[in-house]
């Protein structure tokens, strides 16, 4: 029962982190600026982990993740601002609609492979963005005003649930099915894995959590605009997953944390930030294309004699 040990370990760790941060907020040690960075960090971790299930686990190269984030953001904003629903309902609604969007996009596109899939997902994300740009109901290009309702607690609980669900998925026959597609699609198919089904499942789960991240993002910033969710945002998320290590959940989360801090530090020098990002990306791809962690997980560093890819 090693797996449940990892599970309880993760839960205890999460509680400790939450208690410490909440204590610091209550004690006035973290002002709004730092709280906002923490929330950003949580949102980015959710985005990274939700893309990790698509790229890292299933090996399907999607570069349109921001599109699903946009769906979650706009749907949840409509729910709270136009329909007056409570935030928690709005988040779930955003996530479900985003998952549906993922399903609709995934079924036709996931037949494509490699570069073609990448471009198709990028195309879909742009279409989603252009739709929001053209709908006056959500403010068009000017954007939509959204009340700030997100708290650190929402963001943190979102991260914990995202990680738990995706780790549980990965460590099951379903997750192994997805990994086998990443490793060798033809062999997976020959071994009885319904590859289309699992690709769509992974894509839909990824979209669901991107939707949650989008919903939490929407209620953290006073305004959402279509330009926020352009393909540069998709690239940002991609960078977390790739730098962290394709196939490593903890790697993508660590990369998200680290790069959020770097971004916050360089907030006043956005060009410098992008130059550093791109140089790091190129260097990592040239000299360590598996990313920093490869397919390894942080937990495997503590387990001696226990090897193997997908353990959390």
């Amino acid at each position: 029962m090693k797996k449940s040990k990892a599970f309880w370990g993760f839960l205890v760790l999460a509680l400790v982190i939450y208690a410490v941060v909440q204590g610091m907020i209550s004690g006035g040690m973290l002002d709004l600026y730092y709280q906002n960075i923490l929330i950003q960090m949580c949102i980015n971790i959710m985005l990274a982990v939700s893309l990790h299930i698509v790229i890292g686990i299933t090996g399907q190269f999607s570069i349109g993740h921001a599109g699903f984030m946009a769906v979650g953001a706009y749907i949840s904003a409509i729910a709270t601002m136009k329909l007056g629903l409570p935030l928690i309902v709005a988040i779930l609604l955003g996530a479900v609609i985003s998952a549906l969007a993922g399903l609709l996009v995934g079924i036709p596109t996931l037949r494509l492979k490699g570069d073609y899939l990448a471009i198709a997902t990028l195309g879909f994300a742009e279409i989603i963005r252009i739709i929001f740009l053209n709908v006056e109901y959500v403010g068009g290009a000017a954007g939509m005003v959204v009340t700030n309702m997100t708290t650190w607690t929402y963001a943190f609980v979102g991260v914990v649930i995202t990680i738990l669900v995706i780790a549980n998925f990965t460590n099951s026959r379903h997750g192994r099915g997805c990994i086998s597609i990443r490793e060798d699609e033809i062999a997976a198919d020959a071994m009885g894995i319904n590859t289309t089904y699992y690709k769509v499942v992974a894509f839909t789960i990824g979209s669901f959590f991107a939707g949650i991240a989008g919903a939490i993002y929407a209620h953290n910033f006073f305004i959402i605009q279509p330009t926020t969710f352009n393909f540069l945002k998709s690239f940002d998320i991609l960078i977390y997953v790739v730098l962290g290590g394709l196939g490593s959940l903890s790697g993508s989360a660590i990369a998200a944390i680290f790069l959020t801090l770097v971004s916050a530090y360089l907030a006043n020098f956005p060009e410098t930030r992008m130059i550093i990002y791109s140089v790091v990306l190129i260097i990592v791809m040239l000299y360590r294309p598996t990313g920093l962690m490869g397919t390894k997980e942080i937990t495997s560093l503590f387990k001696f004699g226990k090897k193997g890819g997908s353990k959390v």
Partner: peptide, 22 residues
């Protein structure tokens, strides 16, 4: 397969488990 098509980055056990999927 003639040209071995194992799931290279999975453990030996997991390779068999994938086929045990159903």
């Amino acid at each position: 397969f003639q040209n071995i098509r194992l799931f290279k980055d999975l453990s030996v056990l997991d390779n068999v488990k994938v086929a045990n999927h159903n």
